[in-house]
Amino acid sequence: MPSDDIPFPVTFTAGAIAGISEVLSLYPLDVVKTRMQLTVGKSEYNGTFDCLKKIVQREGASRLYRGILPPVMMEAPKRALKFASNDAYGKYWRNLFGKKESTPALSLLTGSCAGFTESFVVVPFELMKIRLQDVNNASKYNGTFDCLSKVIKHEGIFALYNGFEATMWRHVVWNAGYFGLIQKVRGSLQPATSKTGEMCNNLIAGTIGGIFGTFLSTPFDVVKSRVQTAPRIVGQVPKYNWAYPALFTIAKEEGFTALYKGFVPKVLRLGPGGGILLVVFNSVVGVYQKYIA
C-alpha cells in the first residue's frame, strides 16, 4: 500500500479510478449474485452460468447491466473512501502503536475501520441497485432516478438506509479480510524485480484477498439483499431486519448453505475484482509518484 507521503486526494482519486474499472469489468456477475441470493427455497437456477443464460434468454442481454448506474455512481466515492480511509486509518494506528510498518493485525484493524466508514456512502446506492436487479421489481421502476423517487415518496427518505447494519457488517468483514491478507500474501511472494512483476504480485495478492474477504462476508451480503427487498408494512416487523437474527432465520429455514447463495458469482467478481482494484490503485499512485510528486 502507499507510503505515508501520499496525499489524501491522490489515494482518493486512485481508489475512485480503481473502483470504476472493477465495476465496469465484472458487473453482470453482481446481477447474477443478487438473483441467486433473493431466491427462497429451491432455486430455478442451476448455478452461475445457468443463471446468466436464463437472464439473457428470458430478459435480454441488457438486463445484465440493469441497475449499473447506482454502482457506477457509488464506486467512485465508495472505492475512493475504501482506499483513502484505509490509508488514513493505517497512518493513525501505526502512529498510535509506534509502528513504522503495518503488521497483519494492524492491517485487519485498519481494514475494519475503513469498511465501517465506507458503509455510510454505500447503502443508498446499494438499495437502489438491489431493487433494480430484483426480477420481482422489474415493472416497478423505470430506471435509477425513478427508483430513488418512488422509494422516498412511498417509504420515506430514511428507507434509503434500510439494511445499513447488514451492509456495515459486510464491509467491515470484507475489508478486514481483504486488507488483512494482501500484505501477508505479498510478503510471501518472490520480490518483484520489474513493473510487470510488481503488477503480477499485486494481482495475486488482491485476488486472494478478495476471495478471502468474500468468503467471510457473503452471509451478511445475503442478509443485506433480503433486508433491502423485504416489503415494509406499517405496524409489522419485517421478516428480515437485523443482521444476526436474519442470519439465524435463514439458516434455520433454508439451511446453513443458504447463507452462501450467490457465492460463486460473487467470488468470481470480487476475487479477480480485488486484484483489479489493487493493480489499478497502485498504478495510479505510481503515476503520481513518478510524474507529479
Rank of each mutant, 00 (worst) to 15 (best):
D30S: 12
T103C: 11
S85P: 04
Y45M: 04
K91C: 00
I20F: 02
K91D: 09
G47L: 06
Y45T: 07
K99W: 10
K54P: 11
V40C: 00
R94K: 14
Y92N: 08
K100W: 03
V31H: 03
L26N: 10
A80E: 03
M36S: 02
G19H: 02
Y89P: 00
P104S: 09
S102D: 13
A84Q: 02
T110C: 01
I68P: 08
T110Q: 12
V32W: 10
R35I: 00
K99Q: 09
V23H: 12
V56S: 13
E75S: 15
R63V: 06
A84I: 00
K99H: 06
R63G: 08
G19A: 09
D87S: 14
T48H: 05
L108D: 05
F83P: 06
K82P: 00
G15H: 02
I55K: 01
L108Y: 11
K78D: 14
V40K: 09
T103W: 01
R63P: 03
N95S: 14
G111K: 09
S102K: 13
Y65T: 13
Q57R: 14
G90H: 06
L24G: 08
E22A: 11
L81Q: 06
K99V: 08
L106E: 11
P71D: 08
K91H: 08
A88G: 01
Y92E: 07
Y65K: 04
R94S: 08
T34D: 06
C51R: 07
A84N: 02
Y89M: 07
V72L: 15
K42F: 08
T103K: 03
S43R: 04
A88D: 02
K100P: 00
G90P: 01
K100L: 10
L26Q: 05
S43F: 10
G15M: 02
A18C: 02
F83T: 04
K42N: 12
G60H: 07
Q57Y: 06
P71Y: 14
S107L: 11
L24V: 11
K91R: 14
E22G: 01
R94A: 09
A84R: 00
D50K: 02
C51S: 11
R63M: 05
E75Y: 14
R66D: 11
T48N: 08
K42T: 15
Y27E: 06
R58P: 03
K53H: 13
K78E: 15
Y45H: 11
